[in-house]
Write a protein that binds this DNA or RNA. Structure first.
Lengths: 159, 159
DNA sequence: GCCCCCTTACTCGGATACCTAGTGTCCGAGTGTGTATGG
DNA sequence: CCATACACACTCGGACACTAGGTATCCGAGTAAGGGGGC
């Protein structure tokens, strides 16, 4: 089970975008995070499709959050990049083989699928309880309150 | 984020093995579950390496659980097949780019990594709280108490 | 001086190669059983 | 009748192809700004 690497870039990108009131081009974000520009752009497209960011074309265009950072959960970003379907997919092997269970009695998921689904639920719940604003606050706390100010300064410096 | 398909087979296989006191060959398990025999064998090898099942060679050999089903958690089986490292791997991009944080101040994981780790913890905790015995009981309950008896009968029938 | 149009440079967006990791399969090494033989 | 040695059939284990999804990249379509020209 491996999560797409783009999730990390998308989360960092959203935190950065939360500090800007003007659109930020993908190339600028890539420069700040030291990531391949084109690949980061691909993931930003996914965020755009999910309605988390809004893109503006043209000369001073770029990406911008559609909502306040406190209204965007980590779960939304993860699902936008990595997809919404759960990690465990039941292939209904209980309906296979000599002891197959008839399909009519498989109205509810089997016990194994239920167990995996409950774990997935716990995971999703944890991520849904954290917002981009929380992440920004955490990063700020780690750097004694200077990190976000530095980001804001850097974004406006070369703009 | 996609979990290996072999996890489902391994869990079903462990439930089946919990119903047998004699070794069960991989080919027999594959027949019961309708899965490719060679591929299932590959995953059983992983379970063997993890110490969850014990293999016996020879004419009446096969696989057997090393512990009571109530002492084997779903988490163990999942990690044996899918690996122990978490789905999210932080690449420390905070140390990249023009606003890089010096490595000396990165003694603890960044806020994003902490958020993902807490979610992973919730997921692992949920799976660690369910045992193979619980799964067997759940499957039994779904079929009004006949499923495990049918498995035991089938295992001894063609042995 | 003001308005309109055009050029320009910059942006995103999707379509296109590459590469790792999961999927699936096969054959060889090892082992315990069962039988045939000799005492 | 019992012990021993052998041959056998069956088991696992690791090594070998194949395929899908993630990784990385590029170029074209579209747009807003800014400058130049006309009124």
């Amino acid at each position: 089970m491996k999560m797409s690497n783009g999730v990390e870039w998308a989360l960092h990108g959203c935190v950065t975008l939360s500090q800007s009131r003007d659109p930020v081009p993908a190339a600028r974000l890539a420069e700040l995070h030291g990531t391949p520009p084109a690949y980061l752009a691909k993931h930003l497209q996914a965020l755009s499709r999910a309605g988390i960011v809004r893109s503006t074309a043209g000369q001073v265009g770029g990406y911008l959050l559609t909502r306040p950072a406190a209204a965007i959960t980590v779960l939304e970003v993860v699902q936008a990049i990595d997809g919404t379907e759960p990690a465990y997919r039941c292939t209904e092997i209980r309906q296979q083989g000599p002891l197959a269970v008839p399909a009519e009695r498989c109205d509810r998921p089997c016990a194994i699928a239920r167990a995996m689904a409950s774990a997935q639920e716990a995971w999703s719940g944890a991520l849904a309880g954290i917002t981009i604003a929380d992440l920004a606050a955490g990063i700020d706390a780690d750097s004694e309150g200077t990190a976000m100010a530095d980001v804001r300064r850097w974004l406006t410096a070369t703009a």
